[in-house]
Design a protein around this nucleic acid. Structure first.
Lengths: 106, 106
DNA sequence: CTGCATCCTTGACGATACTG
DNA sequence: CAGTATCGTCAAGGATGCAG
């Protein structure tokens, strides 16, 4: 369920923003191609973690938000974030909250 | 750093057992081939999460244990375990603490 | 703007056999 | 007992182009 490369980051962004458009997610996660972003968003939706709201307008507008089930994993992501922050601080590094900081550099 | 398929499970086993031999880990994680188990153990060691103690005896005896750094991720694994358990309970399922329960069935 | 279709590369992982 | 060596597969992910 959390197998994808960007899923945890998507969820993390949605934790703090409550609602995000597709283009906003692209800016937040520039390393993810549109294809991958779409794919992982659909999988998160299929697993009931996020909700996809399509506005029937031109140009298209789609907003993503967490479901209650999605919100339930907040403690997990928080503990991961805390652990990662502590680790970086011990290394004398800054937490920049981007891909390179939250995810694994290895 | 936690990219491998069995790493979180290895760490989890070491959390409760404090020290485990290679053969014990094989029994605990039967789906992992010796090759994969070795590989992931070496990576965890390289990342400073576990310690590998080799006894110079015949037949060989190797024990694995958590380093202090490895112990520091306990809160992360615990929150994941709690979240997973809650989810399974809501589904009316039992927690069996094996691969299929802790990791993602998807 | 928000995707989908297609092709391609890569490396994680599995299977099997062998060893000090 | 605790691995190593080799080969093979397969699917995740990237690049690019097109579309409603």
């Amino acid at each position: 369920m959390i197998g994808g490369k960007y899923k945890s980051l998507i969820l993390w962004k949605l934790m703090t923003e409550t609602t995000l458009r597709f283009s906003q997610l692209q800016k937040e996660i520039p390393t993810a191609t549109p294809k991958m972003l779409t794919q992982q968003l659909r999988e998160l939706e299929a697993n009931g973690l996020i909700h996809r709201h399509v506005y029937p307008v031109v140009p298209p507008k789609v907003e993503y938000s967490l479901t209650n089930f999605g919100k339930s994993i907040r403690p997990v992501l928080e503990s991961m974030y805390i652990w990662g922050s502590d680790y970086l601080n011990n290394q004398g590094l800054q937490v920049n909250c981007s891909m390179t900081a939250i995810t694994d550099p290895q």
